[in-house]
Structure formats: C-alpha cells, structure tokens
Simulated scan of single mutants.
Amino acid sequence: MQKIIPHLWFDDKAEEAADYYISIFNNSKKLAVDYYDKQSAEVSGKVAGSILGVEYEIEGFCFYNINGGSFFQINPSISFFVNCQTETEVDRLWNKLSRQGKVLMPLDKYPFNDKYGWIEDKYGVSWQIMICSECEQRIVPSLIFVNENSGRAEEAIKFYTDVFKDSEIKEVSRYGEGMEPNREQDINYAAFTLYDQEFSAMDSAMDHQFNFTEGISLLVNLSSQEEIDYYWDKLSADPEAEQCGWLKDKFGVSWQIVPEVLNGYLRDPDPEKASRVMNAFMEMKKLNLAEIETAYKGELK
C-alpha cells in the first residue's frame, strides 16, 4: 500500500477527472469507486448513492479524487512533477493536458531541464512535465511556498523529514544572484523523501493568488493507533481544521491521518457494517482505531 496518497477535492467531477487521467497516462487503472450513504450525503449536501470518490493509479502512483462540493478549490500550491523518459512523451502529455488548460510555464528548454513545462489542466490540477530518463518515481508531488510562507521551504522539508519515517533530504538548490524577487538563500528546488516516497518543494516570492488549501491534501495510511497519535500530535497546528482525520500543519498544508484498514471497512459489501463505520468516524476529529473497529464489528461500547 502506498503510504502517502494525494487527495484531490472536486465538486462533482471526481470520476470524470480520474477517467481523463487514466486515458492519458500509461500504467494507469481505476482501483475503486466509493458512494455516499445516507448520513454522509446529508452532511456533504450530496445525493445518497452518488459517487463520493474514486481511487486510481497513474504511472503506478495512487491518487484519490473526492466529490466534496464547492467548499475547496484545487490550486498550484501542490502540483505534480511528471518525469518522462523521452521528449516524445513530454510532447504527448503536454498536448493532452493543455487542452482547455492554462500554461503556467511554457514548454521549452530551461537551464534546469532540456524540456520542461508547467500546465494547469481543465480541472485545475497542475502538472510539471519534464524529461528525466533516470527518475524512478514517475509522479512526484511538489509543494510551493508562497506569500506568507515564502522562504519557509527549507524549514518545512526539515520538519517533514524529522517527523516522517524513512525520510531524507536528497537535494537542495538555492536562488542565485539576480533572481529577484526571490532571496538568494531561498530554495528554488529541493528533493526529499517521506516513507521512501519522493517529494519536492520550492519557495517563490512572486505575487501568487493562491496558497495551501484542503483542495489537495496528503492522506497518510497508518497501521496502529500509536502511529495515528504520533503523526496527529506532530503535525496538527490548527484545532479548528481538525475533523474526520483531517488536520492542517503549521504551514497550512492539509493532511489526513487515517488507519489503513479504513477503506476496507467502508467498502465492505455489507452496507450495515460500512454505514456504522462511516457514522463513527464522521463524529471524530483524530480517528480512534479501536472505536472504528468496534463500529465495524457491531459491538456495543
């Protein structure tokens, strides 16, 4: 199981977007489709029986799209590097993803890469497409620290690699002289791993009209209450954002701290079991694995 899964928030196009990406990327497939039950539909303003979310893989990397309504919007604060083997692959993905999208950086040759472009697709998801034949992980989440967070990328990656297991800072590159409005000591690219998964980060002092939101969160699958407690205590920095396993850290990045058995319980073919679990965890802030298991089994507290 992939330990950290990007979780993308849509109004009502979760499955449409997933199908679109599966049709574009290689090594891609739909893994599961989840549906609203009566209580979750009432809370979310959706119709019972409608699609709640879709789990899928592109290039072997797992994503989850949720239909959550219009509360949150996806923006470029978290984007996804796509490491391509050939220039032909770069061109193909760029042409597909740019349809009805918005160019953030034109596809071109840059000092840092021979063929690179940054596109926001028609669903608002941002992709940084580049040639990197030696890269093993094809899809890499990237965090950009802007506005009040500009200049905090180094602090963030040190914090995350201290908190998460199997983590390492692999590369740090800084802005040079004459690259204003960014400061020379700020990071223009950093590569790091969390649970042996690759991530990247950068600072930008330009005037950006976005910041981290729940539009894209990072879901962490954990095996025990001890792990849930640990990550919750380390990461949560905004009590008002705590709900149903969601939290915000001190940089405003949203995380979901969940037991890895949760999806299996919610997808149980017995609708009563799944409904009991849904009802139980929707009342929680930090998730309680024992109470979720009790709900699943139908045991009295």
Rank of each mutant, 00 (worst) to 15 (best):
1 M>S: 14
1 M>E: 11
3 K>T: 15
6 P>N: 05
9 W>A: 07
9 W>K: 03
12 D>T: 09
13 K>T: 14
15 E>W: 07
16 E>D: 14
17 A>K: 04
26 N>G: 13
26 N>L: 12
28 S>P: 14
33 V>D: 03
37 D>V: 01
39 Q>K: 13
40 S>T: 05
41 A>V: 04
47 V>E: 15
52 L>Y: 07
58 I>L: 05
58 I>Y: 08
59 E>H: 08
60 G>N: 09
64 Y>S: 01
70 S>F: 06
73 Q>N: 09
75 N>Q: 07
80 F>N: 11
80 F>A: 05
82 V>M: 09
83 N>E: 08
84 C>Q: 12
84 C>Y: 10
91 D>F: 10
99 R>T: 15
102 K>Q: 12
104 L>F: 10
105 M>W: 09
105 M>V: 15
107 L>A: 03
108 D>Q: 15
108 D>T: 11
120 E>D: 01
125 V>K: 06
125 V>D: 02
127 W>D: 00
131 I>G: 08
132 C>D: 11
135 C>W: 13
143 L>V: 03
155 E>S: 06
164 F>D: 07
167 S>F: 03
170 K>I: 14
171 E>V: 11
182 N>K: 14
186 D>T: 09
200 S>F: 01
203 D>E: 14
204 S>Y: 00
210 F>S: 11
211 N>Y: 03
216 I>L: 11
220 V>Q: 05
220 V>I: 15
226 E>Q: 10
238 D>Y: 02
241 A>H: 01
245 G>T: 12
246 W>E: 01
247 L>Q: 07
249 D>R: 05
257 I>M: 02
266 L>S: 01
267 R>Y: 02
269 P>R: 09
269 P>Y: 02
269 P>G: 12
275 S>R: 11
276 R>T: 07
277 V>L: 07
279 N>D: 11
280 A>M: 15
287 L>F: 13
287 L>A: 05
291 E>R: 13
292 I>A: 12
296 Y>D: 00
300 L>Q: 06
301 K>S: 15
